[in-house]
Design a protein around this nucleic acid. Structure first.
Lengths: 192, 192
DNA sequence: AGCTCATGTCAACGGTCGTAGACATATAAA
DNA sequence: TTTATATGTCTACGACCGTTGACATGAGCT
């Protein structure tokens, strides 16, 4: 008697989805393959079979994250509001965009995941934002804006700071949006 | 033949210092007690003897960090510059103030260290900064400013983003200081 | 010097982890 | 139906971890 139908693709997807869910809530080494397999309803050994190793599974999770961190078709002037809304969105809502960043932050200090996480951050988060910015030193300004996004995300999700967590108050969002606009603004151009 | 003199206090201090150094560079579960004891030149068992458990050792490291995150005798108007300098200081210099925050960030996603880290952040980082701010919602503004500090620290130390790492360029510091000033400013008072 | 206790070392336990290989079984072809 | 292969389960290995208790030994007191 086997609990599960024999469907390799479905099992692989289930493992991938379960892994993504776990890596979203714990760091790389705090997620066990037995937990992931348990969530997917299969045995641990299938992880090795389908992905080769835990590190490869994590890489696959990073590669196939359902939504990119940045929607490329957005006008630069709407970027602050878009980032601010992303940063202050409730966890339960459809705020899927922040999830990749959250996975990155969770496993940022994990030696075996560090390389993967650094590459994913640069390619999927930093570069898209920097590409949208016009003016001097776009990468620096994008980094400062993303620092805000990263910081607020950590304060909300990990540090549980009440002053930031209460997201229904639009004050935080408005203030954050204004800050992001300043961070992204072209300082050299303003010195006219 | 014993490598070490028999001095309990010195050994305890050596263990504490070694632990602090390790926790500064790795997350809670990626630091092994055998590594710490090895650095201190003693056996692992002494950790249990002097501190009781790994968690208690970590708590002690958090409790006895040599410098607080905030120097309380500073004027509020100098706070942006002070935070900006702290965020952009080279690792090798005497930038000890940032170390407690770095330990916090490294082990932020470690379940067993989460509580300790959250408490330390609130008591030793957030509250002192919020206490220095005048006007409405000081905690929210302090949180936004610290988001900047946290984000840039992560980008520099963990993500290794070049645009932020090049700290000798004063451009980053100046821009960050301006951003911090905006983050800390009293929005309601500005609407005159 | 001899005694005693604090101090440090050593070996090992129980547990969890990632991984691999042998085995079972459902699915699909012949 | 029989066979072959893909799919999933089970067991176990070796490594590392935090922790513990037994043992050794040096330091300091009498």
């Amino acid at each position: 008697m086997t609990r599960r139908q024999k469907n390799a693709a479905a099992t692989r997807d289930a493992l991938l989805a379960a892994a993504r869910r776990r890596f979203l809530e714990e760091s790389y080494e705090n997620v066990g393959l037995r937990e992931i397999a348990g969530d997917a309803g299969v045995d641990v050994a299938l992880v090795s079979r389908y992905f080769g190793s835990k590190e490869a599974l994590f890489r696959e999770v990073m590669r196939k994250a359902p939504s990119e961190a940045l929607n490329p078709d957005i006008s630069p002037d709407r970027l602050p509001g878009w980032l601010a809304e992303m940063a202050t969105r409730e966890d339960g809502s459809d705020g899927v965009n922040i999830e990749r960043l959250l996975i990155i932050l969770r496993s940022a200090s994990s030696p075996k995941a560090a390389r993967i996480v650094q590459d994913s951050f640069r390619e999927d988060v930093l570069d898209p934002v920097a590409a949208l910015i016009r003016g001097d030193e776009p990468e620096m300004r994008a980094s400062l804006a993303l620092s805000l996004l990263i910081g607020t995300t950590i304060l909300r999700t990990i540090m549980r700071v009440d002053a930031i967590c209460e997201c229904d108050s639009t004050a935080v969002r408005a203030r954050l949006e204004r800050l992001l606009a300043v961070a992204l603004s072209d300082g050299a151009a303003e010195e006219r």
